[in-house]
Simulated assay, not measured.
Amino acid sequence: MSARLRRNPRGRTAVRGVLMAATAALLGSGALAPAPASAAPRATARVTAAVLDLDATGRTPAVYGDDSPYDTASIIKVDILAALLLRAQDSGHPLTAQDRAQAEKMIEHSDNAAANALWRRVGLAPGLAKANRRLGLTSTQGGPGGRWGLTRTTASDQIRLLRAVFDTAAAGSRPAALSDGSRAYLRTLMSRVAAEQSWGVSAASGAGWALKNGWLQRDTTGLWDVNSVGRITSGGHHYLVAVLSDGNASMKDGVALVERTARAAVSSAAR
């Protein structure tokens, strides 16, 4: 399920424009005024997007920005559930009622206690790495110990994960890691996220989307990681979209950046 990456100069320009506009707004508000010499320098938000048009003839995702690792925050919960479903497939037994209840809380409501339990069930970072080899991910490193939110990933690897869930097109002779039933279950939960968590890549969508968002304030800097991944529809096409960001001054700023970037990236990919 791995895919080559297509670099899009126009897309990079569009995303760069989003970042420049965000910086200009901060300057205009005085938020980026020169800091006193004794103050630590304020970090600048960064963002990367990856888009795959599922209805196009090519199967190569476009990447906008630097495809370097970011903290996952709660988008890792999709990967955790995929790993759990692989374990169930291997055992020949469906998820238990408790597993399903925790999975639904974890995806639909981003419940962290449920994620803690399922992270342990899949074997922490080593178990995730084992599952990701089967899912085709190549650039995702599980967080240390119980800190699943500090898993590191790239936008292109998130497209690989989304393909494992949403892409029904034949991908060579290699069979899909997730069964049809497992993929349908993940898609259903991602289409039922709580209303207050329906922001993110859905901003670039018409009717019909499925997503998972993640947000995390870093203790060391006070800045925010804000991410969104999922499947959307736009202009009659279905797209897989991953937008990762960090260094945001607030969650609100991060959500706005992710949504502007998603719209710009999908618009560029559609040209």
Rank of each mutant, 00 (worst) to 15 (best):
T221Y: 10
T221H: 07
T221R: 06
T221F: 12
G222Y: 14
G222V: 14
G222C: 13
G222E: 12
L223A: 14
L223V: 14
L223R: 13
W224Q: 13
W224H: 15
W224A: 15
W224M: 13
W224P: 13
D225H: 12
D225A: 15
D225S: 15
V226R: 05
N227Y: 05
N227L: 09
N227Q: 08
S228I: 07
S228V: 04
S228C: 06
V229H: 07
V229C: 05
V229M: 03
V229N: 10
V229R: 04
G230H: 00
G230S: 01
G230E: 01
R231I: 14
R231K: 10
R231D: 07
I232W: 03
I232D: 01
I232M: 05
S234L: 03
S234G: 03
S234V: 00
S234Q: 06
G235L: 05
G235C: 07
G235A: 12
G236A: 09
G236R: 04
G236V: 04
G236W: 03
H237V: 13
H237I: 09
H238G: 14
H238C: 08
H238K: 10
H238I: 04
Y239N: 06
Y239E: 04
Y239L: 06
Y239H: 13
Y239Q: 08
L240T: 00
L240P: 00
L240N: 00
L240G: 01
V241Q: 02
V241K: 03
V241L: 10
A242C: 01
A242N: 00
A242W: 02
V243L: 05
L244G: 01
L244T: 05
L244Y: 03
L244I: 01
L244S: 04
S245D: 09
S245P: 12
S245W: 06
S245Q: 08
S245L: 12
D246P: 08
D246T: 14
G247S: 13
G247R: 12
G247K: 10
N248T: 05
N248M: 03
A249M: 06
A249E: 08
A249N: 07
A249S: 10
A249Q: 07
A249F: 04
A249Y: 03
S250H: 07
S250Y: 09
M251V: 09
M251L: 14
K252R: 13
K252N: 15
K252F: 12
D253A: 15
D253P: 07
D253W: 06
D253H: 12
G254I: 02
G254L: 05
G254D: 06
V255S: 08
V255T: 15
V255R: 15
V255P: 08
A256P: 03
A256I: 07
A256L: 05
A256M: 06
L257K: 06
L257C: 06
L257P: 10
L257S: 11
L257N: 04
L257R: 09
L257I: 11
V258P: 01
V258S: 00
V258D: 00
V258G: 02
V258Q: 00
E259A: 13
E259S: 09
E259L: 11
E259P: 11
R260Q: 05
R260E: 04
